[in-house]
């Protein structure tokens, strides 16, 4: 593999030296642009207790263009579709090169705490979230228990 830009090395070192609470990210052995990520479901969210696996890839143009991030663990969330793709503005048009892997993952963690059915990616989930929030939250908890818990 070619050499990595210094910025990616710097970010990787910091992610490991000062990890963000509830978030683990580490580069793949073969590809230092590919990160294995684990995000813990935030407290007092339907995802609490869950351990969610994500993959994050830094494209050639990073940090000029945004990292590509996807959930690998199934999750019932109005802004995450069944393929794990995430609807988050900073991953699209609001990306700025001053953002980092760390800030992106923090935003995703925050998205779990605050689902936004008004800007949906998974339409059926968003609909359910709007029509019957209590039931949607129940389903999200159920999915968390089924798919994202380790015991």
């Amino acid at each position: 593999m070619n050499g990595l830009p210094r910025r990616i090395i710097k970010e990787t070192q910091r992610l490991m030296a000062e990890p963000v609470p509830g978030i683990h990210a580490e580069p793949d052995e073969q590809n230092a642009r590919y990160f294995h990520v684990i995000v813990a479901g935030p407290e007092e969210s339907p995802f609490e207790g869950g351990v969610f696996k994500l993959e994050l890839f830094l494209p050639e143009e990073y940090p000029m263009s945004a990292p590509k991030v996807r959930f690998m663990t199934k999750i019932y969330h109005p802004n995450i579709d069944k393929l794990g793709r995430i609807c988050l503005d900073i991953l699209k048009d609001k990306w700025s090169p001053a953002l980092q892997i760390r800030t992106v993952l923090l935003s995703i963690q925050a998205l779990l705490s605050a689902p936004n059915p008004e800007d949906p990616l998974a339409n059926d989930v968003a609909e359910q979230w709007k029509v019957n929030e209590a039931e949607a939250i129940q389903t999200a908890k159920e999915w968390t228990r089924l798919y994202a818990m380790n015991n």
Binding site: H36, F71, M72, G84, L146, Y147, N150
Partner: peptide, 18 residues
Amino acid sequence: REKFDAILKLQQEKGGLI
């Protein structure tokens, strides 16, 4: 990394992975 793989494997077994 080993810890990661263990979690992944477990989730896969339970059909929790996309």
